[in-house]
Design a binder for these strands. Sequence first.
DNA 1: ATATATTCGTTGCAATCGCAATGAATCGGA
DNA 2: TCCGATTCATTGCGATTGCAACGAATATAT
Lengths: 139, 139
Amino acid sequence: MSFQLDEFLPYRLSVAAAQISRRFAARYAQEAGLTIPEWRVLAHLDHSGAVSVRDIHARVNLDKSMVSRAATRLEQAGLLRKDGHRTDRRLIVLELTDEGRDLMLRLGRIATQFQDELLAELGKDGPALRRALAQLSDG
Amino acid sequence: MSFQLDEFLPYRLSVAAAQISRRFAARYAQEAGLTIPEWRVLAHLDHSGAVSVRDIHARVNLDKSMVSRAATRLEQAGLLRKDGHRTDRRLIVLELTDEGRDLMLRLGRIATQFQDELLAELGKDGPALRRALAQLSDG
DNA sequence: ATATATTCGTTGCAATCGCAATGAATCGGA
DNA sequence: TCCGATTCATTGCGATTGCAACGAATATAT
């Protein structure tokens, strides 16, 4: 009996994640042409307030080089500000501008709406999916 | 109330998929240093027998350029053979060599073992996860 | 106090990816 | 039958990625 890739959990997970990312990117492309790293940095900043590159790197599953580059692009787009830390001059503090917060308000609505649709599609399996993903991410 | 990335399904899905892929890659790295596309091509061939690049491309969620390049590398490693199709000379038929089948036997055991461990971690949420991933992939 | 180690953000670089273009082969319609 | 459209695999190329190296700043140990 040969191995069946279609039934293999890591494969199914990877395909589903790519598919959903594509669907979601299509949604917010209308509001803003963000890459996935840019979206993550923006979204995290909206929730966390002013934090360093390292902070985002640790929390958002992005290499620090990606955070750095995404932040540079977002800064050029006027969506966030970079400031030096008061006491530790190694740190760079990132914070959304008004424009950035504004954009996240719109994107947050789109994201929530999208998630609601997904959960509706999933029906009763939604909560189990949530638990399973949490379990797998820590594992 | 600001948007919470941690609770956002597409994000959780993406993080979980990356994490699981890493864990699994660490397992089979001991047996063979394969990339993910190489692993997918090999695994699919093991199950499907001799098929064309296009076939794999359609079934395995890989761009055909990646299938082509992965196949070239696997051929150089002696794990598969490329042959012309009997009647349609546009097609290239890929087929595992004995060595390739041998490797997949070992990798298949590792993969099954890994999946069993994951399902044990997931407990009763396993079946729901399976259904949810199927739903999301088609969506 | 001073040298060594560590942390932080950025940058360089090679590898990878996705998309489009290419060229060969086949198909389909007039 | 013959020519344009389509299908197939490969290749080129720009963009993205992950890793390692770097320079600056801070922490730590003696």
